[in-house]
Amino acid sequence: MSETTMNLTLKIWRQKDAKSKGKIVSYPISGISGHMSFLEMMDVLNEQLINEGQEPVAFDHDCREGICGSCSLHINGEAHGPDRGVTTCQLHMRMFKDGDTIFIEPFRAKAFPVIKDLIVDRTSFDRIQHAGGFISVNTSGNTQDANSIPIPKADADKAFDAATCIGCGACVASCKNASAMLYVSAKVAQFSLLPQGKVEAKDRVLNMVEQMDKEGFGNCTNTGACEVECPKGISLENIARMNNEYLKASITREA
């Protein structure tokens, strides 16, 4: 496992807080192993900055295994960087080579204002869920037996695939319109595929879409960039399903 290490130039967005203006700052870094994850490389940089008495670069992260959706870096112009099907924390340095310059920026969108450096505010995503991302059932302990309504495996599997969205926001950051359609459709589709979700289907889609618009996300023009960058492979099919649900709901609501 003997290996050579890399020397890199990092160009990182630094911004003190929401009100300040930010700028790109350049940092040389050396001795980076290909086995490191991208965030471990950032740890090395931060340790170096602290030792030099400078402020480390702030970025969101927690699970470091691609499931919590915290990490959110725009690397060389791509949400979560050059690899496919991975989050920033799962990206490894072996994707880069000695001498590379790497641009690191926050996810950009009007609905995701920068809080500090590479950290953005994604609470707009939560507010869309407050508007309808649930099934109204109380925890009484008297719900019916879990097997009383069989669900065709194909539907359950599709609902699961939609439900694996981690709420990272890469879809928004990759979209030239900063649209949140892929994210919202993933939840709408999950519930529309399950019998438990049918009762509230109309209100759900109308309310969630309304909230999405209020938050300042852009319109979907079907560029498909979101699907390409989505680390969880959430499919455009979900958007089609949501459009369908939306249409049905708007017609009947107006009637």
């Binding site: 099934i135 059932v137 019916q144 097997n147 069989p150 669900i151 495996k153 609902a159 699961f160 999950q190």
Partner: peptide, 24 residues
Amino acid sequence: VSANIIDQCVAQGVPFAREYGGLL
């Protein structure tokens, strides 16, 4: 109370793995 947890989660729309017959 363990059995109730599964009932509750299914009612909330948690997509557990299912067999071809549609059961959990």
